[in-house]
Amino acid sequence: MARHLITTTINGDEVEFACQPGQTLLEVLRTELGMNGTKNGCGSGDCGSCTVIVNDRPINACLVLGVELEGAQVETIEGMADGTELHPLQQKFLDHAALQCGICTPGILNMAKAFLAKNPDPTESEVRFGLAGNLCRCTGYDKIVRAVLDAAQEMRAPK
């Protein structure tokens, strides 16, 4: 099967990969690039575990094809920390115990990051609707919502 050679930017680095036409970004990340931080929970856009940010928009990596990504900017969980400095959302998830099994965490962190970029001062309800595309079965969402609200406050504060 013909493979397409795609050049894209992942977490700031130029990355070249070859993919088959039907391969999703999720498959490309996990299988071709060995970037396992993006998780596969359903393959149909219903759980949000594979949420990554492409060209500043949060999307399900299972619902994007690798061949579409020529020239795209892709952000995954592996690039969320600034070097060894955790992102405020990552810090707050640890502080608030906003994770248990952790399988949904990378997707939720990416979604929260993209959401706060659009809405830096959300209400509890807005956070809940913002994260409605990310299933978590462990936490009951309580501590996740608190962590996102707390991170938003910290991110708004002048440095």
Partner: peptide
């Protein structure tokens, strides 16, 4: 239709 993630597509 769908989540924010789906809305982006």
């Amino acid at each position: 239709i769908g989540s924010y993630q789906v809305q982006g597509r």
